[in-house]
C-alpha cells in the first residue's frame, strides 16, 4: 500500500525570541467613572487596571475583547476602540442604544428603546457598514449571528412575547412564542440559538433557521431554573450556562445529555453572563462600586470569584 510520508523538523526559534506579557481577562466598562478598564490577571488573581480609555458614556465590548464600541461623553457619537486607537463608525446609529454582538464579533445589532427598527452593523471591526432592519414595534431582547441574522423578541397581544427571525434581506418570521424573553443567544456558528423564558422558567433551543425553524424546550424549573435572565454557550455548543435571577446562581447544562450538571450560587446580584477572554470565563455583574463577580468554568472545578473593586 502506498502511503504518503512527510518529514517534519521543528526548529526552535530560540528562547531569545520568546515573548512575555501579562494575562488579561479582557475589557470592562466602568460606568461610574465613564471609563474602559482592562482586567489584568487570571481568575482568582485578577485586578482592575487603570482606565485605558476615559470620557465615554457607553461601551460594548466585543466577545473576544479585541475591540469595543464606545460613545463619548460629549455626545460625538459611536466610535470603534481597538488596539490601534479610536476610529469613527458610519453615521446613523441612534444614541443610547442597546447593543448585541454576534458570537464572533463580526456583526452587532443596535436598538434604541422606542424605535421601530434595529440597526445591523456588519463587517466589524475593519469595514463596518450599517443596515436598518424594520421590526414594526418595540423590541425586547435580541441577538445577532455573524451572518447578520437576527432573533428579536417583540410584544404579543394580548400578552407575552413572540420571537422573530429576521435575515438581513428577508421578512420577519415568527419562530416562537414565549411569556417573557429574558435572554437570546446564538451558537458560535450561528446555526442554533437558545432563548430563556424568565416567566415560565424555561429554556428553548432553536435550530434549522434555513428552512422552518424548529423550537424545542430543553430545560425547566425541574432543572433548577429560577427566573433565568442570562445565557452563555461554549464554543463547541456542548455546554450552556444559565444565569438564574431568582437564585443569583449559574446552572451548567449539558446540551448533549440534556441535563443540568452543576449549580453555583453567587454572593452577588447576577445580571449577565458576558464572556471574558479564555474559554468558560464569564462576567456575572457589571462594574460599579462593588467588586465584579465572575464564573470561572475553564477549569475542571468551576468557581465563582470576585475581582476586587477599584479602591476608593
Amino acid at each position: 500500500m502506498w502511503m504518503k510520508s512527510s518529514l517534519l523538523l521543528p526548529l526552535l526559534a530560540g528562547s531569545l525570541f520568546a515573548q512575555f506579557s501579562g494575562p488579561s481577562l479582557g475589557l470592562v466598562y466602568d460606568a461610574p467613572n465613564q471609563a474602559l478598564r482592562r482586567i489584568a490577571g487570571l481568575p482568582g488573581g485578577a485586578t482592575l487596571s487603570d482606565p485605558v480609555l476615559t470620557g465615554i458614556a457607553f461601551a460594548a465590548v466585543a466577545p473576544d475583547h479585541s475591540f469595543a464600541i464606545v460613545s463619548s461623553a460629549d455626545g460625538s457619537g459611536y466610535q470603534l476602540f481597538t488596539r490601534d486607537g479610536l476610529s469613527a463608525l458610519p453615521p446613523g446609529l441612534t444614541p443610547s442604544a442597546r447593543v448585541a454582538f454576534s458570537p464572533g464579533g463580526g456583526a452587532a445589532a443596535f436598538y434604541a428603546d422606542g424605535s421601530a427598527s434595529l440597526t445591523l452593523v456588519t463587517g466589524l471591526p475593519s469595514q463596518p457598514s450599517l443596515q436598518a432592519i424594520a421590526v414594526g414595534g418595540a423590541v425586547g431582547k435580541f441577538a445577532v449571528n455573524d451572518a447578520g441574522s437576527l432573533l428579536v423578541s417583540v410584544p404579543r397581544q394580548p400578552a407575552g412575547e413572540s420571537v422573530l427571525q429576521i435575515s438581513p434581506q428577508g421578512q420577519p418570521v415568527q419562530v416562537l412564542d414565549v411569556t417573557q424573553a429574558a435572554a437570546i443567544i446564538f451558537s458560535r456558528d450561528g446555526a442554533k440559538a437558545w432563548i430563556a423564558d424568565a416567566a415560565e422558567n424555561r429554556i428553548w433551543s432553536l435550530s434549522q433557521f434555513d428552512t422552518s425553524a424548529v423550537a424545542a424546550p430543553i430545560a425547566s424549573d425541574a432543572d433548577g431554573l429560577s427566573t433565568p435572565l442570562a445565557l452563555a454557550v461554549s464554543t463547541d455548543a456542548r455546554t450552556l450556562w444559565i444565569g438564574n435571577g431568582g437564585t443569583n446562581g449559574v446552572i451548567t447544562f449539558d446540551l448533549f445529555q440534556g441535563t443540568a450538571l452543576a449549580s453555583l450560587t453567587c454572593s452577588c446580584k447576577l445580571t449577565t453572563l458576558s464572556p471574558l477572554t479564555g474559554a468558560g470565563v464569564f462576567r456575572l455583574t457589571d462594574l460599579a462600586t462593588d467588586p465584579i463577580w465572575i464564573l470561572d468554568a475553564s477549569q475542571p472545578a468551576p468557581r465563582i470569584l470576585f475581582i476586587p473593586a477599584v479602591a476608593q
Partner: peptide, 9 residues
C-alpha cells in the same frame, strides 16, 4: 502570572 509565547519554525 505570565503569558509566555514560544515560537518554533
Amino acid at each position: 502570572q505570565f503569558t509566555y509565547a514560544q515560537p518554533f519554525s
